[in-house]
Write a protein that binds this DNA or RNA. Structure first.
Length: 285
DNA sequence: CAACCGCCCTGGGTGC
DNA sequence: TGCACCCAGGGCGGTT
């Protein structure tokens, strides 16, 4: 599943291939992929054709390619992929958008089986962090890879929430980029139970938790991200290797690498948490 | 306003 | 072989 390390891997790949090349053609083969572009398909195509991508940036799981005062925003959702493909290669079965360039070289193919992801054009504007970013990321917090990320400030903000700490990690407000995999991994590493309320954490353990999230995502990035199947790959279609390093996520029944007691999987808001009930003490009911 | 719920979507897997 | 159902789950609109 694409979370911060996977999206960052994709960002680096796009930066290597797609910048400063005039766009020749934009094909949209599934309208749901551009549902967030309110002005519709023709407007989407008209704004892109002839433009150049100047840079590729990211905040949390949102990715964008800048073109003058606008940006092509991309969110991978659950199963989105940005593939750099030869224009002559066969179209992927789940290709939703294709962007081709006037030089006739590598094209961008946005592939998305489950269509939770998509792209739209958005205006760039200065946000509360004094960064020039698309308006559609103004509501989320900085991620731990951002040079301006303030771990102490984020920990304080986390502690204002009267909800379970895992929910607070997942909702992108205090910190962005964390999804179910890295939430479970960070909570395991910091020995915090996912159902503890965020406001029950000491300032020190909240900081420790965010530090753990940053570390685990940094490690995952070094491995090229987490791949379980063909649904997450880099721009060249290659898998990442971090799934071999997971301590809790997807490890139900296996021994906890710290204490050897079995990792447990339990229901958590329409999905699952993976944790060590011994290392991560449950809150009092 | 914070918190919470349900919906969006597909293909692979499982149980009957 | 076929059908119903489950599962992956981020983001967001609507409701409490």
């Amino acid at each position: 599943m694409p979370e911060l390390p996977e999206v960052e891997t994709v960002r680096i790949g796009l930066a290597e291939h797609l910048l400063h090349r005039p766009i020749a053609a934009v094909a949209v083969s599934h309208s749901r992929a551009i549902r967030r572009h309110a002005a519709g398909k023709l407007d989407f195509q008209r704004r892109l054709i002839g433009a150049n991508f100047q840079n590729v940036k990211r905040r949390g799981k949102f990715l964008w390619l800048s073109i003058a005062d606008q940006a092509l925003m991309i969110h991978l959702g659950m199963s989105g992929q940005c593939l750099v493909v030869s224009p002559s290669a066969a179209r992927h079965r789940h290709e939703r958008i294709r962007i081709e360039f006037t030089d006739g070289h590598n094209a961008l193919s946005f592939v998305d089986q489950r269509t939770f992801g998509g792209a739209h054009l958005d205006e760039l504007a200065v946000d509360k962090f004094n960064q020039l970013v698309p308006k559609s990321v103004h509501h989320i917090g900085l991620d731990p890879f951002d040079p301006d990320f303030d771990l102490t400030g984020a920990a304080k903000q986390l502690r204002t929430r009267r909800i379970e700490v895992k929910r607070a990690l997942l909702d992108q407000a205090a910190v962005s980029g964390i999804g179910n995999i890295y939430a479970d991994e960070a909570l395991w590493l910091a020995k915090v139970h996912p159902r503890r309320t965020a406001d029950s954490l000491s300032i020190k353990s909240a900081q420790n938790l965010l530090q753990a999230a940053a570390e685990v995502m940094q490690q995952a990035l070094r491995q090229g991200g987490t791949s379980f199947d063909e649904l997450y790959v880099n721009v060249n279609g290659e898998s990442g290797y971090f799934s071999r390093c997971l301590n809790a996520y997807g490890q139900a029944g296996r021994p906890c690498p710290r204490c050897s007691r079995p990792i447990k999987r339990e229901r958590f808001t329409n999905r699952y948490s993976h944790l060590c009930p011994h290392c991560q003490r449950a809150p009092q009911r």
